[in-house]
Design a protein around this nucleic acid. Structure first.
Length: 811
DNA sequence: AGCACGCCGACT
DNA sequence: GTCGGCGTGCTC
């Protein structure tokens, strides 16, 4: 038996399966999708089985085949579907196959290959001499080489000699980081009759033992965790030990899942009546689910139209068919509120995956999925890789969110992966948003997705009234405050009525750079072409890209002025201003500073929910998903800061943000107002957001995209080159540009090479090429070919090239 | 990516 | 004469 295996060397040169012989003792265990350890050159590496054959492939130099050394799991972590999907991803996104595989699996499964130093049989007390290292090794028999270098730096140089003389040897070991959590449980070994007898036989003073046995007699055949016995019944270890000694019960270690939601009760909420609109959009979706045929829907529903209920119902019907469902949400809106809704509805059938979990917790949630102990997965981007085998429904909530795009290799978009998965499984894909991505809506209007519209809020709640304030007029009226008169007046009004508010600060442009007010000098990173960010906690200025950190200077390095200061996070400034204008106002500020601690996010929101704050003040993180009945005002301090960033999606992002923030207000009994402050009130994204008019925004923005040649009219590929020397990058980028120009279709536009907007990161200069194309069916193949050619002519130069298909960030 | 193999300068 | 610099090529 011969296995094809991809190894954990994520470079193009090794990006293909290698043949290995499977020793007889492993044949019962090894499967396509298995995680294995194999020798590779002089090393040992982790790999994944992509195929199993009797005779091998065209390589088949049987004499030179090495053997698979280990199969790491009893059941393969990769299903056939995931394996195929990873292969497709590696072609689609031009990434090494093994990188795509690793993106699908919990991080603890990624094995680390380490070189170890081991003692041979020749090493004994006599041969150790006065070497501390040899003594250590004669005791422990083996140590990681890196450890040896650290602990015995002066003896490290002698190691090759000892290897030569046969006292030591080196060996590779592949270790994953799987850990399992265990809990002590107590189980009774007696039958009910024996139990009664035992209780009667206990001495009168054996109070605790009697309580334990009584408990077991009341709950026959049940076992109790020690923790529970202690916490709820006040039973300590010693009576249990005595009972165990009598042979009446046993204490055992049972593996348990790490459950971040343990000890939480989820209330069952009654299913609400569906509105006519909800019924109308559900009908086709449920019928697709019934027929188990591929179908893709775009649910375009205004904020507060009750999309989540639609999703929940569709999921429930999928489960009733005996199929599984994946529910994707943007990282930021995977709030406790959302989780609670799912847990209340589907109980123990749900696994939750998000970045707040520890690696161990993620692994446990993943195991619930692969062991078929859950039917629904709720999670951020990577939850699309849930190892289900009978997926009937995939839902993507807030489908326009940019967090569905991964910004590292593999640079995939969860929406695209979901589409592949839905087709493969004959499943239903449902994307939902109040502000769909232009690409998605365009495909829906062309019939590629079925468009479902919910233009009204639940219970016929009116959309909030939107007031646009021209901040230039405020300035003319001598109002230099960051609050317009309108917003000021409305805040005062809400305070009086004891209603709540959400105040949103668009952080782009309000960054926290450090600038001298006297000479205008700004602090910049010495390795990267960007401004340093001020960090209040330890009074430092820090680079977001490379981590370069310096103490915040007291004087300007340029002009010695003392007036060098950071231009605040914004939120802090707004908070101070609010306190000044409205004495006694209770502000709950949510930004990077106040939410960095684990659980802080949740705490602040629940504080606000309980009414312990008048204002929820924050950045992007408060823009979506939140639903507080008493919020009747949403204020946006500076709507246009995101309008002027150099990004073809700037207008779209602004429209989405304004719509989402506005959607926080007046969702329940009380009517809501939205105040948008801006210096460009005439801009179409602000105008259409004001009228809650997605369709008009879509049409205007489509005209722009057509004019400028951006998606959805053109698709993009971004190639970025980086190197320490400018001439070297430039030459490299030009060679690639020439290579591509000769082979691309005439209608394809190649822009550049030009310096990247952030021209230097970590001391490497960056140049980029942008491809804009409409029809280029062989593009992936061409880019793969180009990458191979690039590797060939770039051998000694060490220029790095990254390819981003359908990029979101053009920096 | 690592790692070994191999071919030229500054040391015992 | 040898130690070690890092260019080159390979990994089933």
């Amino acid at each position: 038996m011969i296995a094809q295996i991809i190894v954990d060397v994520p470079v193009n040169r090794t990006n293909r399966p290698f043949d290995y012989r499977v020793p007889a003792w492993l044949t019962p265990l090894i499967r396509v999708g298995s995680r294995v350890v194999v020798p590779f050159g002089p090393r040992k590496l982790q790999g994944y089985v992509t195929g199993i054959t009797d005779e091998g492939t065209d390589f088949t130099d049987h004499a030179r085949l090495k053997e698979v050394e280990q199969v790491l799991d009893d059941t393969p972590p990769l299903t056939k579907e995931l394996l195929d999907m990873s292969e497709w991803m590696s072609k689609q996104y031009l990434c090494p196959w093994v990188t795509a595989v690793q993106a699908m699996l919990p991080a603890v499964l990624k094995g680390k290959s380490e070189k170890w130093l081991t003692a041979t049989d020749d090493l004994d007390e006599d041969t150790c001499g006065n070497s501390g290292l040899l003594w250590e090794l004669s005791r422990k028999r083996q140590l990681p080489l890196a450890e040896v270098e650290k602990q015995f730096p002066e003896e490290y140089l002698l190691v090759p000699g000892w290897i030569h003389s046969g006292l030591l040897a080196t060996e590779y070991q592949v270790k994953d980081r799987i850990t399992r959590k265990h809990q002590s449980f107590v189980r009774c070994l007696l039958s009910p009759e024996q139990l009664a007898e035992a209780i009667a036989s206990l001495p009168a003073r054996a109070e605790q033992m009697r309580r334990v046995l009584t408990l077991f007699s009341q709950h026959a055949d049940q076992s109790f965790s020690m923790q529970m016995l202690r916490d709820e019944w006040g039973i300590t270890r010693s009576p249990l030990k005595s009972l165990e000694a009598k042979g009446w019960l046993v204490m055992e270690q049972v593996e348990v899942y790490r459950d971040p939601y343990a000890n939480r009760k989820f209330s069952d909420k009654a299913k609400p009546e569906f509105t006519p609109l909800q019924k109308q959009v559900l009908a086709p979706v449920l019928s697709s689910i019934q027929s188990q045929q591929y179908a893709a829907y775009l649910l375009h529903g205004v904020t507060g139209s009750g999309k989540t209920e639609v999703y929940l119902e569709a999921i429930e019907k999928t489960l009733e068919k005996g199929q599984e469902a994946i529910f994707l949400v943007p990282e930021i809106s995977l709030t406790p509120q959302m989780v609670e809704r799912f847990k209340a509805r589907f109980g123990a059938d749900v696994a939750v995956l998000h970045s707040g979990l520890s690696q161990g917790e993620k692994f446990d949630e993943w195991r619930k999925i692969i062991r078929k102990q859950v039917k629904v997965v709720v999670g951020a981007r990577s939850a699309i890789f849930a190892p289900f085998e009978n997926v009937g429904l995939i839902v993507i909530d807030e489908e326009h969110e940019s967090s569905y795009k991964q910004e590292e290799t593999p640079r995939y978009h969860a929406r695209e992966v979901a589409l592949w998965r839905a087709k493969r499984n004959h499943a239903v894909l449902m994307m939902g948003s109040a502000t769909p991505a232009l690409e998605t809506y365009a495909l829906a209007t062309r019939g590629r997705y079925t468009l479902l519209e919910m233009p009204e809020r639940v219970g016929n709640r009116p959309m909030p009234a939107v007031h646009v304030v021209d901040m230039r007029e405020e300035l003319q009226a001598e109002n230099r405050s960051m609050f317009s008169r309108k917003l000021h007046e409305m805040i005062a009004d809400r305070l009086e009525k004891q209603e709540q508010m959400v105040i949103f600060l668009n952080r782009r442009g309000f960054s926290t750079f450090v600038m001298c007010r006297s000479c205008g000098y700004t602090m910049r990173c010495i390795h990267c072409d960007i401004s340093l960010t001020y960090h209040k906690t330890n009074h430092t200025a820090r680079c977001h890209y490379c981590g370069y950190t310096i103490a915040q200077p007291a004087h300007c390095p340029e002009c010695q002025s003392e007036h060098i200061r950071f231009f605040g996070t914004g939120t802090q400034k707004v908070e101070a201003e609010l306190a000044k204008l409205f004495p006694g106002i209770r502000v709950i500020r949510m930004d990077v500073d106040t939410t960095s601690r684990k659980g802080a996010h949740e705490e602040l929101l629940s504080k606000f929910r309980k009414g312990q704050g008048d204002v929820l003040l924050g950045t992007q993180m408060i823009a979506k998903g939140l639903d507080f009945p008493r919020v009747t005002l949403a204020g946006i301090i500076a709507a246009d800061t995101s309008l002027h960033i150099p990004d073809f999606r700037a207008a779209e992002k602004t429209f989405q943000l304004l719509t989402q923030v506005g959607g926080r207000a007046g969702r329940h009994e009380l009517d809501g107002d939205v105040v948008i402050q801006t210096y460009t009130p005439e801009h179409y994204s602000i105008q259409h957001a004001t009228r809650h008019d997605y369709r008009s925004f879509y049409e205007d923005e489509m005209l722009q995209r057509r004019r400028t040649g951006y998606p959805p009219y053109f698709r993009l590929v971004l190639l970025t080159f980086s190197h320490e020397d400018v001439p070297v990058v430039i030459r490299s980028a030009h060679t690639m540009a020439d290579y591509l120009r000769q082979r691309l279709a005439e209608t394809t536009i190649l822009l550049g090479p030009v310096a990247s907007p952030i021209a230097r990161v970590k001391d490497r200069f960056r140049f980029q090429i942008m491809l804009k194309y409409r029809d280029e069916p062989q593009l992936s193949a061409l880019l793969a070919q180009a990458t191979a050619a690039f590797d060939e002519w770039n051998k000694q130069q060490k220029v790095l090239m990254t390819i981003d298909v359908d990029p979101y960030v053009l920096l």
